[in-house]
């Protein structure tokens, strides 16, 4: 599903260059579950952002379902983000003014899906993460774990084939983290590809494959 070849992401900071990613080679098959681990600042988020088309590599190849992402126009990248990739952030990134339901509806709003259909699908997605009874609560009325479950519902509501999660449990207590991980595992078993950044060895152990990063490079694959 995903192929990265000799991928670089270089930041220019003043006069010096920071290589957030260097020479990254990676293949991810459809339905795979990959955990990305490594010390802070090793380039995990950078990698995930590039996979999610939130950022662009400085050099190298990125093919999504055989299509060259670098060659894609803005519209095509937007479509990829919209319907083929679901992103789960460490800090949830929910809109505070919208209810859980409203947040889950957001991707469908921009995809031009009719209101009644949005309602129905958002309700189903919230049901799937066990938050039907919280549909009309705003984020500040929800616990961290609940917020992240809303974010997961939002990530899957467009039925994407790929879910990217950047330390989704980084800000959660153990019990909430376990719930979130169960949900993500379920999404993966349902056939979605899952790429997950984590610091937690136990969580990494659940993945089918692991890559360890250090200083922008992949240093170990298991």
């Amino acid at each position: 599903m995903i192929e990265l070849g000799d991928l670089w992401r270089t930041y220019r900071v003043g006069d010096s260059e920071v290589h957030a990613l260097r020479e990254v080679e990676l293949e991810i098959a459809r339905g795979d579950f990959l955990a990305v681990v490594g010390p802070s600042g090793s380039g995990k988020s950078t990698l995930l952002n590039i996979l999610g088309c939130l950022d662009r590599p400085t050099a190298g190849r990125y093919a999504f379902d055989g299509r060259d992402v670098a060659a894609m126009g803005d519209a095509e990248r937007t479509r990829l983000r919209q319907s083929e990739i679901g992103f789960v952030f460490q800090f949830f990134h929910l809109l505070a003014r919208l209810t859980a339901q409203g947040n889950v509806e957001l991707p469908m709003l921009f995809a031009g899906i009719a209101r009644s259909e949005r309602r129905r699908r958002a309700a189903a997605a919230l049901d799937a993460v066990g938050l039907s009874d919280r549909a009309h609560h705003r984020p500040d009325q929800l616990s961290g774990g609940q917020r992240q479950r809303v974010a997961i519902a939002r990530a899957v509501v467009m039925d994407p084939g790929l879910i990217l999660a950047d330390e989704p449990t980084g800000n959660l207590d153990r019990a909430s983290a376990a719930e979130v991980m169960d949900l993500l595992g379920e999404m993966n078993r349902a056939g979605r590809t899952l790429v997950l950044v984590t610091h937690d060895p136990e969580i990494a152990a659940r993945a089918r494959r692991r890559v360890r990063m250090d200083d922008g490079a992949i240093v170990e694959r298991t």
């Binding site: 803005d74 992103f87 957001l106 921009f110």
Partner: peptide, 16 residues
Amino acid sequence: RREIGLLKALGASTRQ
């Protein structure tokens, strides 16, 4: 800005 980034990450186009 953050909201703009989020909307784009969720699949909103620049025009939207």
